[in-house]
Amino acid sequence: MPPEPEIEHLVTAGTFELDGGSWEVENNVWIIANDREAVVIDPAHDAPAIAAAVGDRRVLAIICTHAHNDHVNAAPELAELTGAPIFLHPDDLPLWKQAHPGDHPDEELRDGQRITVGGLYLHIRHTPGHSPGGVSVYVPALDAVFTGDTLFQGGPGATGRSFSDFPTIIRSIRERLLVLPPETVVYTGHGPTTTIGEEAPHLEEWVTRGH
């Protein structure tokens, strides 16, 4: 029996561009893998570095939690390097087309969908607000949820730009994330990890601050 998949981490750096603005950012790239198979979550900035981290393991899926360019700009090249399909929720196609005109993801992500790697189930939860097609990836066997830019240590993701909405992201966090077990580790799109238990008590503070 191959070993159970574990979580591997890579930080890549590049540019986030939206609404005419440009910001230098560092992104978390997450890999769920055993010694044979891997899934990549949020292929940011540096496809060769991500491919090197994966090595000779078979990449089953490239999952994009949302389509802001800093989370998907390396996706087509990584797909070419690994032969893996790119998964994206269809509600984020307008953002994807800004990053990759003329290109298209291979597969649609759907709420309730399950993707397997190394015998583990990855549960897709639609968590819009930061973007219309934002998703989180919940892996009960690893006590882990990968939230992209929906939930960070200290609060929700930004909602001040196009395609985003503050009440929607609060609803997603309240109904789709804070219902998870408190020990669930939150693996974010940028910055440090946190847990559901650490963030849950602060929801009402975020609501007040956001208004």
Rank of each mutant, 00 (worst) to 15 (best):
V54G: 00
L142D: 06
T208V: 13
L120T: 13
A44H: 04
I62C: 02
E37Q: 08
P181L: 01
H123A: 10
V139G: 02
I169R: 12
N73F: 02
G197R: 06
A52K: 12
A75L: 06
N73R: 04
P2Y: 11
A49M: 11
T65I: 09
G134M: 10
E107V: 15
P132T: 11
L180S: 04
P2H: 11
E183D: 15
T195W: 01
I7W: 10
I86V: 15
I169L: 14
R161Y: 13
E204I: 01
L178M: 04
H202A: 10
A84S: 13
I63N: 01
V40K: 01
T194K: 02
V135Q: 00
P182W: 09
V185T: 15
T65H: 09
I31T: 08
A49L: 12
I170R: 12
L81S: 13
V29S: 00
A67W: 08
H66W: 07
L180C: 03
A144R: 01
G102Y: 14
N34T: 08
A67F: 07
P140K: 10
A67K: 06
L93R: 09
V135E: 02
D92H: 04
T188R: 08
A44R: 07
G155R: 11
R125W: 02
P90F: 13
P105R: 03
H202L: 12
Y138T: 05
G189C: 06
F146I: 14
V54K: 00
G55M: 04
Y121R: 15
Q153A: 15
V29I: 07
R161V: 10
N28F: 13
D91H: 10
F163C: 06
S22T: 09
V139M: 01
L180G: 05
N28R: 14
L93K: 03
E24S: 15
H66T: 06
T184P: 08
L142F: 07
I32D: 00
Y138G: 05
T159K: 08
G118I: 05
G83Q: 14
H104T: 15
I196P: 08
W206H: 06
G157F: 03
L180K: 03
V179D: 02
G133P: 00
F163R: 09
H211G: 14
H66I: 03
F166C: 11
S22Q: 10
G20N: 10
P182C: 08
G83A: 12
A200L: 09
E205T: 14
H202Y: 14
W206E: 05
P192A: 06
V72K: 03
H130V: 13
A67C: 10
D165W: 09
S131H: 05
H190Q: 15
P94Q: 15
D46M: 09
R171L: 12
E199W: 00
I115H: 09
R174Y: 04
A49C: 09
G119F: 07
P132K: 12
A51D: 06
T116V: 13
W23E: 10
L203M: 12
D19N: 10
D103C: 13
T65S: 14
V40G: 04
I173E: 04
P3F: 11
H211R: 15
L151I: 07
P156K: 01
D106F: 14
R209A: 09
E205A: 15
V54I: 12
Q98Y: 13
H9L: 10
D103N: 14
A52M: 11
W206T: 07
G191M: 08
I62M: 08
P2G: 11
H66V: 05
P156T: 07
W96C: 04
